[in-house]
């Protein structure tokens, strides 16, 4: 009895072991389709999430793969696989190691690309992946406490200009889009806040709720609950146009006289380097199709994303230009 118990225990773990290795290590030969026809995947697609479960990129990839499965857009499954670590560096390096593998793609987010430019990575994102498409903007807003002293962006900026180094700016990690937003405020609006770094925007929102910071920089999805309840007031958006719904009261920076202050985070799909044109076309088309599914539309809506479509080539160009702009400002700041 004892032996049987242990044996089964051992077998169980070995099964688990072999399964996990099979999942991680199954990379097969190239998989071009029948002669002449368009490229189609010949096995399940590994959809790499360069972040932990539960984060924005995780939800993005899972929503997409669910929408694909629900609408039977693909004959194979898109399997979301988390490869977190090093502020996305682990995921991107994995992509690099899978060069030429046409069944591996990545959930792309502009934040990780910023890090690849300014956080001391060995390579920039273009040297590790190729952008397939950009599907949505994840716009950034500034929020204050409704019960706090700063009801609008003007009074907030004025306070930061008059008393430099006293107002607290709750934010996620440095060397990321949030710090870019902060540096723009400093440079163009001469507003000098104290940058307080939290692990995530969620923690920054918590700090704002407790009154430990004066303003927090948040994506709409991260503060929708508080904005609906009236505890947070969105005072400004970094987008080029006003956002919809409850956020429509928040002006853009162009409206208050700082047209240079613009930041739009974006999400999409990236591919491994060295993928065939046919495969890239396939993923681009899938991106276009998934964007039109009711499931994914609903996901974009609940998260207050702004849908957009930039395909092959265009998306890569856009991303690189944005990153260069951000890197330039960071260089300027560190020089001082």
């Amino acid at each position: 009895m004892k032996k049987f118990f242990l044996l089964s225990l051992g077998m169980f773990f070995l099964c688990g072991l072999s399964l996990s290795f099979a999942g991680g290590g199954a990379e097969g030969g190239s998989s071009s389709s029948a002669q002449g026809g368009p490229w189609v995947p010949s096995k399940d697609i590994e959809y790499i999430i360069p972040a932990s479960p539960g984060g924005g990129s995780d939800l993005w990839a899972r929503a997409m793969s669910n929408a694909i499965a629900a609408n039977k857009l693909s004959t194979v499954t898109w399997v979301p696989t988390n490869r977190a670590g090093g502020a996305s560096a682990v995921g991107y390096n994995y992509m690099l190691s899978q060069k030429g593998n046409e069944h591996v793609i990545l959930a792309a987010h502009s934040g990780a690309m910023v890090s690849s430019y300014v956080a001391g990575w060995a390579q920039k994102f273009e040297d590790m992946v190729e952008m397939i498409c950009i599907l949505a903007f994840d716009d950034v807003t500034l929020c204050t406490l409704t019960t706090g002293p700063y009801k609008d962006i003007k009074s907030l900026l004025k306070a930061a200009q008059d008393k430099p180094g006293t107002l607290k700016f709750g934010s996620d990690q440095r060397l990321n889009s949030s710090q870019y937003a902060y540096e723009m405020l400093k440079k163009y609006a001469k507003a000098d806040f104290n940058y307080v770094q939290y692990d995530s925007s969620g923690d920054a929102a918590t700090a704002l709720l407790g009154g430990h910071v004066d303003v927090a920089i948040l994506n709409p999805a991260e503060c929708l609950g508080q904005v609906n309840a009236g505890t947070f007031t969105p005072v400004a958006t970094f987008a080029t146009e006003r956002l919809s719904g409850k956020f429509s009261g928040a002006p853009t920076f162009a409206e208050i006289g700082y047209p240079q202050i613009v930041l739009r985070e974006f999400r999409g799909i990236s591919a491994t380097l060295g993928m065939s044109e046919g495969a890239k076309k396939y993923y681009e088309e899938m991106g276009r199709k998934v964007q039109q599914t009711p499931e994914f539309k609903k996901y974009l809506e609940t998260n207050s994303f702004t849908p957009v479509f930039m395909g092959l080539g265009e998306s890569q160009k856009y991303a690189s230009a944005e990153m260069q702009k951000i890197a330039d400002l960071f260089k300027e700041v560190t020089k001082k």
Binding site: A87, A119, N176
Partner: peptide
């Protein structure tokens, strides 16, 4: 080891991306 908690710079990662987030 890993990314510095305040400034985002890397510490003692020896060029290994797996160590960039620190020891798990």
């Amino acid at each position: 080891i890993g990314t510095d908690q305040a400034a985002g710079y890397l510490r003692f990662h020896f060029g290994l991306p797996n160590l960039m987030a620190g020891i798990s």
